[in-house]
Design a protein around this nucleic acid. Sequence first.
DNA 1: GTCTATACCCGGATAGAC
DNA 2: GTCTATCCGGGTATAGAC
Lengths: 212, 212
Amino acid sequence: MPNPSAHRKRDRYHYGDLRAALIGAAIELMGERGVRNFSLAEVSRRLGVAVSAPYAHFAERDDLLAAVAVQAYQLFYAALAPAIEQFSDPADRLAGMARSYVRFASAHRPLFELLYTAGLDKSRYPEIEAAEQPLVAAFLDCVHALCDGNEALSHDLATAVEADAHGHAMALLYGDFGQGDIAVEEAADRAARATLALVAGRQLLRSSPPPA
Amino acid sequence: MPNPSAHRKRDRYHYGDLRAALIGAAIELMGERGVRNFSLAEVSRRLGVAVSAPYAHFAERDDLLAAVAVQAYQLFYAALAPAIEQFSDPADRLAGMARSYVRFASAHRPLFELLYTAGLDKSRYPEIEAAEQPLVAAFLDCVHALCDGNEALSHDLATAVEADAHGHAMALLYGDFGQGDIAVEEAADRAARATLALVAGRQLLRSSPPPA
DNA sequence: GTCTATACCCGGATAGAC
DNA sequence: GTCTATCCGGGTATAGAC
């Protein structure tokens, strides 16, 4: 009796959930060839289904990518959640989130690239923005304690910390941090420390504008 | 007597410098359709030359992109130079560079995207790295005065400031800063202020690692 | 829901004439 | 150095059978 989970990819077959299989295979393919070389046809081939099969689930190519993006944000948020819960000190919590942010970019590089460098037209897909929302809110929430109810400052600090985490992630993926686990942890460390520096100097985020 | 500069694009013609024209048209095309939808064929069409003509100057498609990237880094550096010269105070100078960094990303978006989100295989093009060098050095140089000759701290601060500037630029291009000149200046302002906060808290960049 | 088959378009790249 | 012509491969998307 053949175990369903043991089906080889090349078996042409009815999937219980082709939609989910497409999403999974899309992630895998993006990981191998980069987001820019992703194609619906290749995904179909890998699953052993006809190139037309996906159109029963997604009206067009980008709709599949959008579905992947939604899942990516959920995973992203889940990756940050432990840091949020782990630290009671607000500064440490923010630093932990920055660290997790960089780690996520490395551990799920194709997803991260899909979200930020793939040029998906997010305005066409409100569900992506909705999926991003909890992540932004997480930064904002945990920053409040540091800002004594000052909403403007909270927003400034949240933006700065996100930019910091994002910038370190980009530097890791595309810059000169090198590769390997050591590089990841170094970048994550730097992001965490820079976060602490931003927190320490946060009053300057609202000071009079620096010279033009 | 026809003015050469008045030639319409569609005139088929011998260019004095097709190579330069290709680079210019490539930038224009990337601006309209995004880097990912750039094609050599379309560039040729716009210049009114045969699709095979570019191959007299570039062995393959990506070689043209690499040439554009080199020019982009030169322009990028030129955009930062005024800020470097304008400020004598090291902190203000860094802040000014961060501000110019964000402005450049907005003013030359296609070039910025080519450099950082196009996935060009830079390792294949040493000339790109060479062109990037002055920019990295500029950050490093102007950070030294703030770090009392501490090389390690200089490197940390330079990395943090670059990540900060880059992160704000990405937030402006892809995030929720909105559009328009106001958004640009707001993002640039935030990047500058965050830089000052990083400078103020710079000793924390070398402190004991924050909790994992 | 998935198949087969196909129409269509486009880009990269090369050969050989001028 | 540029042209014309062409080959090749690949992707998107649709029609219609099962």
